[in-house]
C-alpha cells in the first residue's frame, strides 16, 4: 500500500480512547475520585441493604415499640445495638437509612433514565424533521421549562396521589424537557456534517440514520448532563417526599425519613432526622462532584 507519511505520530495521542482519558482525569482529582468512591460505597450499601441490615425496618413484627427513640449506640430489648439510634416506632435508623438510600437511588436513576429516553427521542425528532414537528415539540419544551419543576411535580402528585411509580413519572415529566433541548442542539450540529449527507446519498432509511448516525454522535453531552441530573432528581424526590406527596410511608426514601424525624428535632432526638439528612447530603454532593468532573472532562456546558 501507499503509506501516508503524515500524522502517524499524531494519531498515537488520539488512539487513547476517550473513556480512558476521562478515567485518568477522574483518578487524578482527589475530590472526584473521593466522590466516585463514596458513590460506589453508597450504591453497594443500598444494594446489599436486605443482607447487611440488622433488621428489616418495615417488617413490623421485627420492631419493638419499647425500643422507640433510643439514642445512638444504645442496645435495645431485642439485643441489637442501634448505632444510629431508633425512631418513634423503635426502628433501627441505620437499617432505615440503608433502605431509604435504596428508594432514593431507585427513584433517581429510573426517573433520570426515563427522562433521558423521552427527551432524547423528542430532541432527535425535532432536529431531524424541523418545521412543524420541531416547532410543536420545542413549544412544549419551553412551556415545561417555564415552570419551576418542584411546582409542576407538586401539583401533579397532589392530583394523582403518592407512590414510587408516580414520583418517578412526575420527575420524568419535569426533567425530560432539558434533555430534549440539549439533544436537539447537539443533533442540529451533527446533522450538518457530511457523514449524514453520505448516509442520505446511500439512500439509508430515516430510522437507520437517526438511530445509527445521529443518535450516537449527539448523545454525549446529553449523557453527561444526565449524570449530573441524577442528583437533582434525587433532591427533587426528597423534597416531594418531605412535603408528603412523594413515596409512600411503607417505602420511605431519605427525604421521608427526614420528614418523619423532623418533629423530634426540638425535643432533642436529633438522630431521627439528622442521620438520614447526612446520608442524603453525602449522596447528592458526591453525585454532583463526580458529574461536574465528567462535565468538565467532556467539555460540556451545563443545562
Amino acid at each position: 500500500m501507499t503509506a501516508d507519511i503524515e500524522t502517524f505520530a499524531k494519531t498515537a495521542e488520539a488512539n487513547t480512547p476517550l473513556r480512558m482519558q476521562v478515567l485518568r482525569n477522574i483518578r487524578n482529582r482527589p475530590t472526584a475520585s473521593g466522590a466516585a468512591i463514596a458513590i460506589a460505597i453508597l450504591v453497594l450499601l443500598a444494594l446489599l441493604a436486605p443482607v447487611i441490615t440488622p433488621q428489616n425496618p418495615y417488617d413490623l413484627a421485627s420492631l419493638s415499640v419499647m425500643d422507640n427513640r433510643l439514642a445512638p449506640g444504645e442496645t435495645g430489648m431485642t439485643g441489637i445495638t442501634y448505632w444510629l439510634g431508633t425512631d418513634a416506632q423503635g426502628r433501627d435508623m441505620l437499617s432505615a437509612i440503608l433502605y431509604g438510600l435504596r428508594t432514593s437511588l431507585l427513584v433517581g436513576l429510573t426517573a433520570t433514565a426515563g427522562a433521558l429516553a423521552i427527551g432524547s427521542v423528542a430532541g432527535l425528532l425535532a432536529a431531524h424533521f424541523g418545521g412543524a414537528v420541531d416547532a410543536l415539540l420545542m413549544r412544549i419544551v419551553d412551556f415545561m421549562l417555564g415552570f419551576p419543576s418542584i411546582l409542576v411535580a407538586l401539583i401533579l402528585l397532589s392530583s394523582i396521589g403518592r407512590g414510587v411509580d408516580k414520583v418517578v413519572v412526575a420527575i420524568m415529566l419535569v426533567q425530560w424537557a432539558q434533555y430534549a433541548r440539549l439533544m436537539r442542539a447537539a443533533a442540529l450540529v451533527e446533522r450538518r456534517k457530511e457523514y449524514i449527507e453520505a448516509a442520505l446519498n446511500f439512500g439509508l432509511p430515516t430510522r437507520h440514520i437517526l438511530l445509527f448516525h445521529l443518535l450516537p454522535n449527539s448523545i454525549g453531552s446529553v449523557l453527561v448532563v444526565a449524570s449530573i441530573s441524577v442528583a437533582s432528581a434525587i433532591t427533587l424526590e426528597a423534597t416531594l417526599s418531605f412535603l408528603g406527596v412523594g413515596v409512600p410511608v411503607t417505602q420511605p426514601s431519605l427525604g421521608l425519613l427526614i420528614a418523619n424525624g423532623f418533629e423530634f428535632l426540638l425535643s432533642g432526638q436529633y438522630w431521627i432526622a439528622v442521620f438520614p439528612g447526612i446520608a442524603l447530603v453525602l449522596l447528592v454532593m458526591s453525585l454532583n462532584l463526580l458529574g461536574d468532573r465528567l462535565r468538565r472532562s467532556f467539555n460540556v456546558r451545563g443545562p
Binding site: 457523514y195 453520505a198 448516525h213 454522535n217
Partner: peptide
C-alpha cells in the same frame, strides 16, 4: 466529499 474528517461517522 470535500472534508475527510466530517464525512466519516466517527
Amino acid at each position: 466529499f470535500q472534508d475527510p474528517y466530517a464525512s466519516l461517522n466517527p
